[in-house]
Amino acid sequence: MAATTKQPWCASSASCCSRSWGADAYRRGDEWWSSRSPEGKKEWKALVSTLSEDWIAAAEAGARPESDRCQDLARRHIEWLRAVPGTPADDHSTTTSRPKASESI
């Protein structure tokens, strides 16, 4: 993958992710994304969209960070980060399986 390409799971370019998290983290994330089927990619994007919409709705409703609503969103967000190899929340040394896009995130 070219160093300037942006993947849907990465908020910026490959060079930025490589500088922030390391080249190995970007490589693992890119391999994970590239190995997904078109349907899997579509499901993942829908999952991320729902999570983002839920965060926006909570903010617009004035939900406080310590509220059950925001704490549940934070839990879901961490689950989402753990599901992508190479993200800061991914602990590939102890995690052997990844949640499917259709799971509880």
Results as ranks from 00 to 15, higher is better:
20 S>W: 04
22 G>F: 12
22 G>H: 13
22 G>S: 01
22 G>L: 03
23 A>Y: 05
23 A>S: 14
24 D>W: 06
24 D>K: 02
24 D>Y: 10
25 A>M: 02
25 A>R: 13
25 A>I: 09
26 Y>H: 13
26 Y>M: 13
27 R>L: 15
27 R>F: 12
30 D>E: 13
32 W>E: 06
32 W>T: 02
32 W>D: 03
33 W>M: 09
33 W>H: 10
33 W>Y: 15
35 S>R: 12
35 S>K: 14
36 R>Y: 09
36 R>E: 11
37 S>N: 06
37 S>M: 07
37 S>C: 06
38 P>M: 11
40 G>R: 03
40 G>P: 10
41 K>C: 09
43 E>I: 04
43 E>V: 02
44 W>F: 11
44 W>S: 11
46 A>I: 02
46 A>D: 10
47 L>Q: 11
47 L>A: 15
48 V>D: 12
48 V>Y: 12
49 S>H: 11
49 S>Y: 00
51 L>K: 07
51 L>E: 08
51 L>P: 00
52 S>A: 13
52 S>W: 02
53 E>G: 12
53 E>M: 07
53 E>H: 09
55 W>M: 05
57 A>K: 15
57 A>N: 13
58 A>I: 10
58 A>G: 03
59 A>N: 03
60 E>W: 01
60 E>D: 06
60 E>R: 13
60 E>Q: 14
61 A>N: 13
61 A>W: 00
61 A>H: 06
62 G>I: 05
62 G>V: 00
63 A>V: 04
63 A>W: 02
63 A>S: 14
64 R>M: 05
65 P>F: 11
65 P>R: 11
65 P>D: 11
65 P>E: 13
66 E>C: 05
66 E>T: 13
69 R>F: 00
69 R>M: 08
69 R>Y: 03
70 C>L: 04
70 C>K: 14
71 Q>L: 14
71 Q>S: 05
71 Q>F: 00
71 Q>K: 15
72 D>C: 06
72 D>W: 12
72 D>L: 04
74 A>S: 03
74 A>E: 11
75 R>E: 10
76 R>D: 06
76 R>P: 00
76 R>C: 04
77 H>F: 05
77 H>P: 00
78 I>N: 03
78 I>R: 10
79 E>I: 01
79 E>H: 11
79 E>Y: 07
79 E>G: 08
81 L>F: 08
82 R>W: 03
83 A>Y: 06
83 A>F: 08
84 V>P: 08
85 P>T: 07
85 P>V: 12
85 P>R: 11
86 G>D: 11
88 P>Q: 10
88 P>F: 10
89 A>R: 09
91 D>Y: 04
91 D>S: 03
91 D>Q: 05
91 D>A: 04
91 D>L: 10
92 H>I: 12
92 H>W: 01
93 S>E: 06
93 S>C: 03
94 T>R: 14
95 T>P: 04
97 S>D: 07
97 S>K: 04
97 S>V: 04
98 R>Y: 14
98 R>V: 11
99 P>I: 07
100 K>T: 10
100 K>N: 10
100 K>E: 12
101 A>K: 02
101 A>V: 03
101 A>C: 09
101 A>Q: 09
101 A>W: 07
102 S>L: 00
103 E>L: 00
